[in-house]
Computed example of a mutant assay.
Amino acid sequence: MQPEAEVYLKSVKAFCPGITDDELALFASKFSFKVLNKKELFLESGKVQKHLGFVVKGLLRSSFVDPEGNEITVGFYSEGDYATHYPAFIARQPSKYSIQCLEPTTFICLSFDDLQWIYRQSPTFERYGRLIAEEILKRQQARIESFIFQTAEERYLDFIKHRPTLFNRISLSHLCSFLGIERQTLTRIRQHLARK
């Protein structure tokens, strides 16, 4: 088995410790590998997402273009994350977001049909799917609430705390867009924190 597959199956087992080796082998029989270069799109806005992509290695950014033509960053996906606009993927609807590689990226992919087939094979797989969906929902909710309840500085500190390995892998413009702040505001926040 390829090392990438081992990484993925280990993450599945971490979510569902009771999963058997036979079930894991069945799971592995359905997934495929995909490698994209920096700047290539995993998902294009307006298209239906074909595959759920587990990031084995690399980094991606999810974004949309606002009515003024500005590209707004809404998320980052790195090792161990699923690159997806999940509600649109499940509903088989065109996504409003694009997901682009910021680094060369290796994925393990599962098509929608294969995912549904896997769910039908065992309650363990259904449980895994539910746990992943809950994790994605929690992240989305946390992002929404960060704009309601946190200051820009708190959002910045939260990002550093929860995604410390990403900080040196993304551009400041992408970070500012994700935090919903101007470049000058980020500079002021960092100067203020440096003085503390």
Rank of each mutant, 00 (worst) to 15 (best):
Y128L: 14
L102Y: 08
R130F: 01
Q93I: 00
I144L: 15
E23D: 13
R130Y: 08
E79G: 05
R190I: 13
K57Y: 08
L115V: 00
T20M: 06
G58S: 03
Q141L: 08
S171W: 01
Q184C: 08
L110W: 02
L186N: 09
R92C: 01
P3H: 03
R169A: 01
Y86Q: 11
I72Q: 12
V35C: 10
H51R: 02
E182W: 03
L179G: 05
E4F: 10
L193A: 15
I148M: 14
Y77A: 10
R127G: 11
A28G: 08
A142I: 03
Q121P: 06
P67C: 04
F54C: 07
F27A: 07
D114E: 12
F42L: 09
P94E: 02
L36V: 12
L102V: 05
A25P: 13
P164L: 00
N37K: 06
V12R: 06
F42V: 06
Q93K: 05
S45V: 02
P123K: 03
T124D: 14
Q150P: 06
E40F: 02
F64V: 09
N37I: 03
D158T: 13
I144F: 08
F167W: 06
S45L: 01
I99Y: 02
L131P: 12
P67Q: 09
I19E: 07
N168R: 12
S146C: 06
H51I: 04
E4Y: 04
V7P: 10
F33P: 12
F112M: 00
L166Q: 00
F107T: 09
L59D: 03
R61A: 14
K138A: 14
F64L: 10
I108P: 15
K196R: 14
E79I: 07
S62A: 07
D22P: 11
R143Q: 09
T105H: 03
K10T: 13
P123Y: 02
V65P: 13
F112K: 04
F125L: 06
H85M: 05
P17W: 04
G46S: 02
F15S: 15
A133K: 00
A14Q: 13
D81M: 03
V12Y: 10
P164K: 00
K47V: 01
N70K: 15
L115A: 12
R163C: 02
R127H: 14
S45R: 02
K34S: 12
R169S: 09
S146F: 05
T124W: 06
G80M: 06
L137N: 13
I144H: 11
Q116E: 05
L43Y: 01
A25H: 14
E6N: 07
W117G: 14
T20R: 04
H174S: 15
Y119G: 01
G69T: 05
S111P: 08
V74E: 15
R61P: 11
L193G: 12
G129V: 04
Y119K: 01
A88Q: 01
Y97M: 10
F125G: 11
Q100N: 04
E44P: 05
P87I: 02
R130D: 12
